[in-house]
Amino acid sequence: MNKKIGFIGTGNMGSAMIGGLISRGTVKAEAILVSDRNGDSLSGAETRWPGISCSTDNSSTVKGADIIILAVKPHIYKAVIEEIAPLVDESKIIVTIAAGVTISQAETMFGKDVKIVRTMPNTPALVGEGVTAYCCNSHVSESEEREIIPVLESFGIVEKIGEEYFHSVIAVSGSSPAYVFLFIEAMADAAVLQGLPRAQAYRMASQAVLGAAKMVRETGTHPGELKDAVCSPGGTTIEAVRTLEKGAFRSTVIEAMNNCALKSKEMTKG
Rank of each mutant, 00 (worst) to 15 (best):
V241G: 09
D228N: 14
M215W: 04
G235V: 06
A256V: 04
V209T: 02
L226C: 02
M204H: 02
K214F: 00
A213W: 05
R203K: 15
A248R: 15
E255A: 15
G220I: 03
S232M: 08
A212I: 00
M215S: 01
K227I: 07
L244R: 10
A256R: 02
H222G: 04
M257R: 02
A256L: 09
I254Q: 05
E225P: 00
R217G: 00
R242V: 00
A248F: 13
F249V: 11
L210N: 05
L244P: 02
G234E: 05
P233M: 09
G235M: 08
V216D: 04
P223Q: 11
E255W: 11
V253G: 06
K214W: 00
T252V: 08
E245Y: 09
L226F: 09
S232Y: 08
L244E: 06
G234F: 05
L226H: 06
Q207C: 00
A229W: 08
V241C: 13
F249R: 07
G247R: 13
P233H: 07
L210C: 01
A248G: 06
Y202L: 14
G211D: 07
R250P: 07
I238P: 05
P223T: 12
C231T: 06
A229D: 11
A208N: 05
T219L: 10
F249H: 10
E255S: 15
T219R: 06
Q207D: 06
R203I: 01
A213E: 04
L244G: 13
P223W: 11
E225Y: 05
V209W: 04
P223M: 11
A205C: 10
C231G: 00
A248V: 06
T236Q: 07
K246N: 07
T237H: 10
F249C: 10
E218W: 00
P233G: 10
R203Q: 14
T252Y: 05
T221A: 10
C231M: 12
T252M: 11
V216Y: 02
G234I: 08
F249S: 10
V253F: 13
T236S: 14
I238A: 09
S251N: 06
M257K: 03
S232T: 15
A212G: 14
T221S: 11
E239V: 08
S206R: 03
I238W: 05
K227L: 12
V230M: 12
E239H: 14
